[in-house]
Design a binder for these strands. Structure first.
Lengths: 223, 223, 223, 223
DNA sequence: AATGAATGAGCCTTCATTCAT
DNA sequence: TATGAATGAAGGCTCATTCAT
């Protein structure tokens, strides 16, 4: 029985279909990162991938659809990277550190993806569902972080204060990282992540039994 | 020789020339804020201002040129607002607070300008000189802030630490504010600014003889 | 040697080949009727039939070819329906009535087919051989009708006059029917056909010994 | 004072704007007539007119808009031609004759316009308002004709009968004319018109005191 | 100083068609 | 026999920009 591999499917898609989609998404990410939102035309993406522009329309219903796929892929990868690291955290300080470090390292490891996501987010008006997903992802991340800080404050791990403000500030601090890494390539991301984690821990403040400037000392967690 | 008024100049420009340029820049800001970078076409800007699209090309060499004018106007206004408030600051903590509060209040008072500036910055690849100015402004602001923090640490007003990291983090925290204000219109900007200032002061840390949460009182340093 | 059935042929075609062609023609008719000429793309036809677009190209050399098949099928069915009814007619008046009634009833019974045929005729320029067949069919029908009227006039069944004018007018009157039936669905087609036959008989006029409104009874002429 | 002519306006349009629009509409009519609906692309129209395709978009909001302009121009011209001739008619028979003759002569004098209108009508699905206007025009003409026949029957000028059927049949007979004239260029339109008028008068039938083949002479009815 | 007419490139998308499988 | 991947041309439309006036 021939050509089995070609007909096997994953999620209703042929292998080759899935491969093309991935390839196109990758091309879109690269072009978005390099040329910006306005420069990410089907023609440019197709040229980079080495296919005809019509083929993108064949695999994606819309530009929106393609942009949505980019957003989905990048946010999922980012979420996974964070989840991987925060899963083991035993307290709020450890979790915050894990999240910050994971995020910074992801930024360093996937600069184009992160850049593309940011580019899309900043041009969200254009596309309806596609790019709004990027904004929604950010909003969800902020809300999650707010809950996390409130939780930590209730648990006495963080100093009392406006958890929303803390979340927004933390998100902002993190979002400034990719440009900094790009601007100063000599920066060691791992080190930067650890330092930023420490700094943001100080920002969140120590709870009743903690120490503001650094590290708690109960657990044995680090990043 | 009549029409003297029309020929009087400031900076090499006729009055009416300057007025038109301002009018067009204002229109560009509004459209950038409302329609995003991709939506800010000459046609759309001209329609809003009530002129013909060709006139924009008459007054600005390029789209770049127009974008550059927007960046210049907004960054200058922002700088002025900051300078106004930080001028009176008597020490680093006061100066930091003044800077943060001034910036947040500027964000609240001029949402379109800030939005437009952000939009341009996020699409900086497109336009050569025009939009890169926005990035350059940010880079300069970061560098200045880094110097400020280093200064403050040397003076013992801030805790020792990586001043660059502190600067980038502070910038990031500030840049997250406009979206937060837009997303939650019920937020009181003045209050948000004070809280954020307090928070960022804690982030910078208290120096040897200072108070973390408040205002120091020794130095006479500038922003 | 199995699969004999699959290789049996009619007119040089496999059974399954013939079946597919019919299926595709039927799909094309439906799509033409519903979406118009411009909307009748291979993709749309294929989707309706439940096959891949490439298969249409496999079974038909061209879009022209497909359009030609549609024209052939519909005109043949129409001719057959007319022949069925006019075969028994004993004179020119009866034959005219039979033809008109048969045609109107065919219009009512096969609205999509008729619509598709009309759509093709009205876009005949596009496709070379395919759609010109529709025009040719109309021309042939007109010529036949002209001969019929001339015949009837010679036989004294119709009033003397320009047989060509009569034919063109009759064709026109018939071609207005499908839209009328579609626009006013409450119309009873059988009744409409009888009334129209009577009216057109009056238009053709009564011959020397005939009755204008009704049926003559001499000839043995065909349609 | 210079360039007066250029700034004078008619209906809010510059002269040159109006001239261009007319020129484009004329080009669209020619291309529609020659290449059919599917062939009437902006590129093709522009090439014929000798302008760039973008200029069509500059003068017309849409393809729909352009198509609508074509429909408006042709239907208005046709209506005017009919009104010119039927205005003087003193009774229903005279009015019917005038209408038929005027229409046939218009068909002969403006073959492309008529062809274009027909082409648009037959592809009405594609375009929303633009082409539906052509269908609406036909529906209105039919309704008006129906009223006319009913009127004439009430006045005793036409034989009793289904006025709707009569109207639809008359419209159909008229719509068959352009193709006949195109197919047989040797046809004399004036003669054809007179003959068709006579034929359709016979179709409508003579009223109580009238003469079937000719002209009534009593009434003062309108068209 | 200002208009509005005009261009040509580029946008996303759909199309008929081809071809390896 | 049938699929689905792929192409290249063409579609309408918007854009920044130019230029005569």
């Amino acid at each position: 029985m021939p050509s089995r591999a070609r007909t096997e499917r994953r999620g209703g898609q042929t292998f080759i279909e899935a491969a093309r989609r991935d390839q196109i998404v990758a091309g879109a990410i690269a072009v978005l990162a390099e040329e910006g939102y306005g420069g990410a035309s089907f023609a440019r993406i197709a040229r980079r991938v080495g296919i005809s522009p019509g083929l993108i329309s064949y695999h994606f219903a819309n530009k929106e659809d393609l942009v949505g796929a980019v957003v989905a892929q990048v946010t999922e990868a980012l979420e996974a990277a964070i989840a991987d690291r925060t899963g083991a955290a035993s307290d709020h300080h450890a979790a915050l550190r894990a999240m910050v470090e994971a995020q910074v390292e992801f930024f360093a490891a996937h600069p184009s993806e992160v850049n593309a996501l940011g580019t899309i987010r900043n041009n969200a008006r254009d596309t309806a569902t596609g790019a709004k997903a990027a904004l929604a992802h950010r909003a969800a991340a902020t809300a999650r972080l707010e809950r996390f800080f409130r939780d930590g404050q209730a648990a006495g791990d963080f100093a009392p204060g406006d958890a929303r403000l803390l979340a927004v500030t933390t998100i902002g601090a993190l979002e400034a990282v990719p440009l900094e890494l790009a601007t100063r390539p000599e920066t060691d991301p791992a080190h930067y992540g650890r330092e930023l984690a420490t700094l943001l821990a100080r920002t969140a403040g120590a709870g009743a039994g903690g120490v503001p400037n650094g590290v708690g000392f109960h657990g044995g967690h680090d990043a």
